[in-house]
C-alpha cells in the first residue's frame, strides 16, 4: 500500500509517496532523488547509508520510509552550508585524501559531523568509537582520522 509521508529533508519540507515496505534509504535515493546516501550492505552492517534523523545518526536501510513521518532527516546533500562552500569536514577529507573509492564517505561524513557536534575535541579513541559502525575498505582509516582531527581544529578556531 502506498502512503504519503510528510517530513523535513535538509531543512526543506517534503512529501514522498512511498510503498509501506520501502526503506528510508530506497525512498531517499529513488523517490526523492538524493543519491548521495549510499547503499552498501542494506542490512545495517556497513554504515554507508548513515543519515541523521531528529539529530541522531541511523542506518537509513534499517528504517522504513513511513517511519520518517513528521521527522527531520539530514543527508550528505545538506552538509555543505552553501552552494560554493564546503563543510570543514568535506574540505579536510579532500585535503587529506581521506576518500578513495568514496562509497563509505557520505556515511562517514555524517557520522563525523555528529561526533564533532557532540564532542568538538575527540580523542583517537572517541573517533574510533564514533566510527565503529562505518566500514571503509580502502583507506585503512588513517587519513580519515587525520581529516577529522584537522576539521575539529579548524571548527574550533572558527568558533573562537
Amino acid at each position: 500500500m502506498k502512503r504519503i509521508v510528510e517530513l523535513t529533508i535538509n531543512g526543506e519540507p517534503r512529501d514522498m509517496t512511498v510503498d509501506s515496505c520501502r526503506s528510508l534509504l530506497d525512498a531517499l535515493r529513488d523517490d526523492v532523488g538524493l543519491t548521495g546516501t549510499k547503499k552498501g550492505c542494506d542490512v545495517g552492517d556497513c554504515g554507508a547509508c548513515t543519515v541523521i534523523v531528529d539529530g541522531e545518526p541511523v542506518n537509513a536501510c534499517l528504517m522504513l520510509a513511513v517511519e520518517a513521518e513528521g521527522r527531520t532527516v539530514e543527508t550528505i546533500e545538506g552538509l555543505q552550508p552553501g552552494v560554493d562552500t564546503l563543510h570543514p569536514l568535506q574540505d579536510a577529507f579532500m585535503r587529506h585524501g581521506a576518500s578513495q573509492c568514496g562509497f563509505c564517505t557520505p556515511g562517514i561524513l555524517m557520522m563525523a559531523k555528529k561526533l564533532l557536534d557532540d564532542n568538538p575535541r575527540p580523542s583517537d579513541e572517541d573517533i574510533r568509537f564514533g566510527l565503529s559502525g562505518n566500514i571503509c575498505r580502502c583507506t585503512g582509516y588513517t587519513k580519515i582520522f587525520d581529516a577529522i582531527k584537522a576539521a575539529a581544529i579548524e571548527m574550533e578556531a572558527a568558533r573562537s
Partner: peptide, 9 residues
C-alpha cells in the same frame, strides 16, 4: 550492541 546507528533504533 551493534553500532551507534543501530543502537539509536
Amino acid at each position: 550492541l551493534g553500532s551507534i546507528q543501530v543502537r539509536n533504533r
